[in-house]
Each structure stands twice: as C-alpha cells, then as structure tokens.
Design a binder for these strands. Structure first.
Lengths: 244, 244
DNA sequence: TGACGAAACTTGTCAAGACAACCATGCTCA
DNA sequence: TGAGCATGGTTGTCTTGACAAGTTTCGTCA
C-alpha cells in the first residue's frame, strides 16, 4: 500500500492537513467510490493511509459530520450520510458561495442576456407601466458540471443600469445585484410543477418530471429591484436563508 | 487566583470540558460581562483560568467562532462578535396576522399537544441526543372556516418550558414562541408531495392530491429552538416575506 | 526624526500518547 | 440452549509539547 499519493507530498503551505483529509473524503464520496450508507475506514486506518495523526483525521471527520455529510456512531464507525434533504441547492445567499462551502465547483452557462419590454403581468409585478423596459438574463447554474438551477432574472434598469454588461459566468447575478442595491424586502412564492420542454432541456432532466419553482421579488429603495424565477429539479429544496 | 469555581470540580461525566468552556464563555457574554466588541482573554490566559489544556480552549473558541458568536484574528485576539449587523432577509409572519390583514377570520383546531421523545432524525435536527424530550403540537389553521394549513410543531423545551400549558386556539404557536425567544436564524426546506390519509383528513382535502410542505427550523441563542412542518393544499404557496 | 528590525504575544495547526465510553463478537459456564 | 462476560475495535476527549504565521510594540540605528 503506497501511502504517499493520498496527500500532497509536502505539507502544503496554504491548506492545512485536516482540510486535505476533508477534501480526500469528499472526493471519494462525490465520485461514488464510497456510496451512501457505506462505512468509511476507521480513524486508525485513515491514519495509516494518510500518515497524519489521529487528531487530524478526527477533526476532519468531525467537521464533515457536523456539516451533515457523515454520520458517526461511537463504538461502531463512520458512515456516509444517507440521501437526505442533502442536496441543498439555492439560497438567499449566493449560490456560488454555498457551493464553495460544500467544496463543490460552481459554473454558470448564460443562455440569454438582453433587454425586453414587460408584458402586463411582468409590469404589474414590478409596479411599472406595461411595455416598460426591463433587463433579463437566463442562466443555468452547475454544481460539478451538473445542472441544479435554472435562473430567469428580470431586473429594474433603474437599480442596475450596467446589468447587461456583466459576465455572469464569472459573477452571479445575485452577487452583482446585491452590490448595486441592498435588498430591503424579499418575497417568495413556492410552486410545484412539472418541467416543460425548455426547462427540461436546460436542466438536462426528463420532460414532465416534477420540479420546484421559486418566485422571488426583492425591493430596494422602495421599488421592486428584481424578480427571479428559480427552477430546481425534484420535489424538495432548501431555501437556505439567513442569519442575523 | 482561585481557579476552581470556573469549571465543575470533577471532570463531569456527561459534559466534556470543551463544552464547559463554551458554556462559560456564553454565560459571560450573555450576562453582559463581556459586551460586544470586547476582547476576550487570550487562549493562554484561559488555560491559566480554567486549568484545561490549550487545545481544549482552542476547540471551544473555534466552535463558538464557527457559530458566529466570536471573531478571531490571528496575531491579535478573540472578540465578541458585534451585534447583528444586518437584518434578517426572510421575515416570519404570524398566519393569524396575515389573515387579519386580508380581512379573513382565523381559527385553529388543536389536534394534539404533548411531550414526546425525539427519534434519531428529529434529535439530529435539534442537535440533541436521541431520546431527548421535546414538546409537540399538531393543529389546523382555518381561514373563514376553511382548513388552509396543517402545523406540526416541535419545540426545544429549553426555549419554551411552558409550551404545553398554552391554549393554541387563542394564541398561535408562532406568536407564543417568538415571545419566548426571538429567532435569530431561519432555515426553510420546501417539499412537494401528496396528501397522505391523515393529512387529507385534517385539511379536508382528497387523498393523494398535491400539497406543499414547508420544513422550518429556527434558532435562538445559538440553539435550534423549534421545528415546524407546515402543510398546505395545492401546488403554490406564498412563503412571505420580509423586511428590514 | 524616521525607518528598520527584533521580540513578544496572539491564533492556527499538528504530533504522540493516553484513557473513557460504547458496541459487536464470540466464548465460557450454568 | 441460553445468559452472562471478556475482549477487541471504534469513536470521543484530553494533555503535553511543539512549530508556523500573523500582529503589535518598542528599541535601535541611520
């Protein structure tokens, strides 16, 4: 058993060892090598495998368990947490940040970015006259190359005049917009539906399968700043939210 | 310097020492002895004060910092985290108040109100040991005599010791609980499902019809205060809310 | 006076060893 | 056969000791 390649050869200056252990575990779980309910090697085995001390292995496993990825039972072992609500997707917080916290890679595919004129329903949602100009972007958020959210974003030009110049594969609309105007009020409507052909194609899911749509409006400076329709595959989703 | 009274004299069998350190810090912060922005004693000073090793002090401080109660700066020190800087984004509203604003009449039917022991999943949601005691209430909210929401409410007894004595046909659990402890953090999980027989009967809806379930956890004083499962008929629901 | 640098102090991390609490297994003994 | 116990393996926690990395302070030197 070669124990070298499991960790970076030299104590990498930037990332502590317990983080490397966490990344190691995460990668094996993500790759399917250790499926759900699988029992992990014991702490002592991981010590032999990685060459670090048991305290370090323990800290890595404990933090992953605190985060909900693992389940630990004293006297028995450590297990990959079952398929629970744990595919937390979108948040009130930045979706890219959330993924980063989970150790996932975020990417976004921009499908459209344009100005358009509000139809009566959209105009009413913004409190603007019908035909008023709005900005619009449509993008798909990917977690480790898997599509997890379709974002239809409508923006009041008054709030973010430079919205159309942004590169949303580099900065999420959420992040850009909150930098333009802090949201003072938020409204959410949750809707259970089924994927229409366009949605199914964007999210790489079968047509007519169940999905959840979050309608979100945010106000800034007393006017409706943006409206987002966030579509997720499946019947369950975590609306993260928000602390202090 | 007497170091004895700061910690329990004997290594208390149940609670580990790092937990005792955390409780010590928490109590001083809660009592106002260490106000916001105050600098805490250094790790080495806490070692002298408490008699435990620095690793143990470090773990206690690190976990409190992870929870957001403290701020740590390498080379400088540990500080009590400032007061809640910004507002909560998702405001919770009392369902009875919402109805009043709409000019509807609210009523509630209490189906159960009891104490129970947490199964492992519920215990995990609360961060309590399995078998811990919880309070529970099940009630149906009526809008103009029409059932609109089935509320399954689980409560951490520490937060609301008198929960079982309340008459929830007169005051909503939400209203009572927010009077006990202000929520500082909220988490929502949305789930689309179909009504099982019990739910259908409670909401006077056909069995197997679509419904939306909101799982809501709220934190107060850094612990999980309550968990609510709110079931609504239909495929659309306005989560509400709010402001600064 | 001003710039530089050493020293002290802080937090961040890791190692090695130890004991306790808990669980599963298998063995012994009635 | 069945109950009870010993044993080994697992996680949970703690201590001592150490080094690294960051900040502040203050003294020294130009």
């Amino acid at each position: 058993m070669s124990d070298a390649p499991l960790l970076l050869p030299t104590p990498s200056p930037a990332t502590p060892r317990y983080q490397q252990i966490k990344a190691l575990i995460l990668s094996r779980v993500a790759s399917g090598e250790w499926p759900a309910e699988e029992r992990l090697p014991s702490e002592n085995e991981l010590v032999k495998m990685t060459g670090v001390s048991r305290v370090t292995v323990n800290r890595a496993l404990r933090e992953l368990a605190d985060a909900g990825l693992l389940t630990r039972v004293q006297g028995v072992g450590t297990f990959v947490a079952g398929a629970k609500p744990q595919s937390s997707l979108l948040e009130l917080r930045d979706i890219a940040e959330e993924m980063a916290e989970r150790g996932s890679r975020h990417a976004a595919r921009v499908l459209a970015q344009q100005r358009l004129r509000a139809d009566p329903a959209m105009a009413a949602a913004f409190g603007l006259p019908p035909g008023a100009e709005l900005f619009h972007a449509r993008l798909v958020h990917l977690e480790n190359d898997v599509p997890v959210q379709l974002e239809e974003r409508y923006v009041n030009p008054v709030i973010a005049p430079r919205f159309l110049e942004q590169d949303f594969s580099r900065i999420t609309p959420y992040r850009f917009l909150t930098s333009c105007a802090p949201p003072e009020r938020v409204e959410h409507v949750v809707e259970a539906g089924r994927a229409n052909p366009a949605t199914a194609a964007a999210l790489a899911m079968p047509e007519d399968e169940p999905c959840l749509v979050i309608h979100r409006r945010t106000w800034s400076w007393r006017v409706v700043a943006t409206r987002a329709l966030l579509t997720h595959p499946g019947t369950r989703y975590r609306l993260g939210s928000a602390l202090d």
